Amino acid sequence: MKTRALLLLLLGSAMACAVALAPLAHADDDDKRIRRLQRSGEVLSLDQIFNRARAVKQGRILDADLDEDDGRLVYEIELLDARGRVWEMKLDARTGRLIELEQDD
């Protein structure tokens, strides 16, 4: 009985670790995908995108994700301005053109 309880405890811990680490594995896959797309010229580099984002709003980049939106690749950027407001913007990943800008609540 003790062995079974210990086994269940270990199994539960292992499952919890796998669930907790799943987003990290997904983040690594995203990073690899972004680098591959940048090398092939399909999307602008993060430096280029960050420069375009800061041309729209000055501030510190908090987060950047590459997503697909209606069949086109889009960088979603979160930026913190000097007044402490967080802005979310979407930029076309191929051209850097601003698609959407809104203040985060």
Rank of each mutant, 00 (worst) to 15 (best):
K2C: 03
T3V: 05
T3K: 03
T3G: 02
R4S: 09
A5R: 12
A5V: 13
A5P: 00
L7F: 15
L9A: 15
L10I: 15
L11C: 12
L11I: 14
L11M: 13
G12T: 15
M15G: 14
C17Y: 15
V19T: 13
A20K: 11
L21P: 08
P23R: 04
L24P: 06
L24S: 13
H26Y: 12
D29W: 07
D30Y: 10
D30L: 10
K32I: 09
R35M: 09
R35G: 00
R35N: 09
R36W: 07
L37N: 07
L37M: 11
L37Q: 09
R39A: 10
S40I: 03
E42M: 03
S45T: 15
L46Q: 10
D47N: 11
F50N: 06
N51W: 01
N51E: 14
R52L: 14
A53P: 02
R54L: 10
R54K: 15
A55I: 02
A55P: 00
K57G: 00
K57Y: 00
K57H: 03
Q58C: 02
Q58K: 07
G59F: 01
L62W: 05
L62K: 10
L62A: 07
D63W: 04
D63C: 01
D63H: 12
D65C: 02
L66I: 06
D67A: 09
D67H: 07
D67S: 10
D67V: 13
D69F: 11
D70G: 05
D70H: 14
G71S: 06
R72G: 00
L73E: 08
Y75R: 05
Y75H: 05
Y75P: 06
I77S: 06
I77R: 03
E78R: 12
E78Y: 05
E78L: 05
L79G: 05
L79A: 04
L80D: 07
A82T: 10
R83H: 11
V86W: 02
V86Q: 11
E88Y: 00
E88D: 11
M89W: 02
M89G: 06
K90L: 08
L91C: 01
D92F: 06
A93R: 01
R94N: 09
T95R: 04
G96D: 07
I99L: 15
E100Q: 10
Q103M: 08
Q103V: 01
D104V: 03
D104Q: 13
D105L: 08
D105F: 08
